[in-house]
Design a protein around this nucleic acid. Sequence first.
DNA 1: ACTCTAATTAATTCAGTCAATGAATCAAAA
DNA 2: TTTTGATTCATTGACTGAATTAATTAGAGT
Lengths: 399, 399
Amino acid sequence: MDRFRRGNKQLIKDLNEALVIDQVRRFGPISRKDIAINTSLGASTVTYIVDSLLKEKYFTEIGSGISDYGRKPVLLQFNQRKSYIIALKIEEKQIIYGKFDLNARMLAKISHNFNPKDSVKAIFRLMADQINQWIAADTLPCSGIGIAAPGLVDQANQKIIHSPILEWEEVDFSKLEEEVQVPVYLENDANAIAHAELWDGRGEQFQNFICITIGAGVGAGIVVKNEIYRGEVGGAGEIGHIIIQRDGLLCYCGQRGCLEAYTSDRFIMAEALHLKELKLSPALNQVEQLTMNSILQAADSGDELVQELYQRVGENLGIGLKSIVNFFNPGAIVLGGEGLRAKKYIIPALRKELEDHFFSRHSKKLEIILIDLEENQWLMGAAAMVITQLFKEPLYREV
Amino acid sequence: MDRFRRGNKQLIKDLNEALVIDQVRRFGPISRKDIAINTSLGASTVTYIVDSLLKEKYFTEIGSGISDYGRKPVLLQFNQRKSYIIALKIEEKQIIYGKFDLNARMLAKISHNFNPKDSVKAIFRLMADQINQWIAADTLPCSGIGIAAPGLVDQANQKIIHSPILEWEEVDFSKLEEEVQVPVYLENDANAIAHAELWDGRGEQFQNFICITIGAGVGAGIVVKNEIYRGEVGGAGEIGHIIIQRDGLLCYCGQRGCLEAYTSDRFIMAEALHLKELKLSPALNQVEQLTMNSILQAADSGDELVQELYQRVGENLGIGLKSIVNFFNPGAIVLGGEGLRAKKYIIPALRKELEDHFFSRHSKKLEIILIDLEENQWLMGAAAMVITQLFKEPLYREV
DNA sequence: ACTCTAATTAATTCAGTCAATGAATCAAAA
DNA sequence: TTTTGATTCATTGACTGAATTAATTAGAGT
């Protein structure tokens, strides 16, 4: 009912401690003096708060800094080894585990295959075993488990509601939490990438942006006011099935004209097959078995028809994204994923399509940012989500 | 840089005062006791805070309430006459002015025509005159001016960046603020409707929703976490030109396949003309001059071809909205505007189109809400915006 | 029927608490 | 000696809880 905590001394303390921690995390190594200036807290107050935080091992003092004259400042550094985070990425046939410090740097990584036909219970067993093994092997405490999973995720209730890729329905992760005795945070995989982008700096430049991941499907992680936006039931960003062509191609989802139907590997494969059948493309004619790689090679060998095919994919993507840009007016679009392996041909066409939108006249231009999406990015995003959670401002009423 | 205020006694006080005011605004008449229970503040603290707020005329004591036993509670009511708000709606050829109390109830209303060819300076003169006249005539203070205007609005800088309807570019309202000596808050008109919806209760049910206004153009007011979302440069919600058909009809904006090209009065008129030319529709054949009204009458008379035309408009709208639903996952879509005069035919088709989207399997259904959009709604929204601003939690660092 | 008392709930008073604050002081360096 | 960083300490002020006062009802006694 009440959205904010009431004001009392505890709130002041929590708030200012968070403020000081934030300063050291963002600007450290930093002196007490500078913290006082940046936060506009009194110097004596900073001394007092830093003392208690030093006792709790949030920081370490790392000698003195430089100064032209007078006493040298004592520099405080964030202790990224106060505890650690375990991040998981659940894929179709394997689970990848990463161990991260509080600066979201990877300390260890491992992965286990599983049989998709196994029961959820068995897979939970597998996860809990690995997690508990890591926890037992480390003297430091584990502050949380971050899990990136494909599908419709209900973050607040720790549930995967529906995941076509995993073929899971209504899977409740609170049971995993019970087994590992550490807080478990679940997140949609596209959102994990958005967390990763927020972590290393795009969030400073842009208040609002979207991260598009193009792989088996097309997904979007949405950032509003530097926070992940999940929608009313946790499924915002499912842009694979927005319609770019009324009465267009039939999509596997049953609709016609979906974005995915016009951009997926399946679409590229079908169109390439068509070209091959019509014997229009010299490069494709030489290939025996069409694969995504051989199609790309055909384009790279200079085959214009195949290059045009990729350009069309770029246009299709651009049309879909233009709708989103008009509706959402993001500061940037971040793009990544294996679906962009032919980015050489796709991106210029996409850029061209996105050139004019409702805001193109505005002085602040829409930025299009390409990123490499390797395995580690997803894990890092999942870890970053937990760390963000750990250090978020303590303003809201604890439930 | 720092997003939140530092914690000190002033913050506690500001926060708790806001908390108490909020209680009385939402649940009043209410006793000190109940405020203490709801906010979890101490009873003595509530007495103390209420005392100071009574002195500042935020509340009035309105006698005692009921109780089975023991001392009767003294009820506090929000004083909606502490000050008032002036709201403006700027239209193509007229400006409508409304005076509102702090419960967003209209106290007075007037409108003045202006010549669209007049200079902005002259129109500002007109506005300032009316506003200053009202301010001079009232003994109470005016707390703010809320202005709803069509086009791309930069709220933070009090600027209309670009308004095709008014044919205004880069109009700076800080000059108006100087003339009236009262804070001026500018807002896009679709957002004003969203404010109105937030005000009377949709915001309690839904965290995230969108308000679609269908008039000369199609616009959307977007609500995220009970707050208006404006996008990176203030132009979120410009959905008139999202593309629903690749290589479709040419739109006046230069693009092909825009939502507006498939839903506007212009589209309906063109299609009806086409029907008339082909002499396919008996009802339209009898009409001399085609108008939006005569077309609607043709449908109402039972002409199936015209009814189908409206149904197609509904489908087109539905297709556009489905994309938005998949991307944004709102809890509700609120629809209104004169473009829906044929809602009898449009809405069923729209509903059908929206029936299956990515979340349709989720237990929480997407709600579609129709509202009447009369003149007063826009004014009320503009007033509600100012009042919301006036009473918002004082958590963020004052800039 | 009237008065008085106990019980109950609402509101206020008041001394105590504690985190921030600013002035004074200490520490370290040029 | 001067300058800058860090600490100490008395003061401030908003919340807090216990005690008190205010207002009301039920019920007992006359």
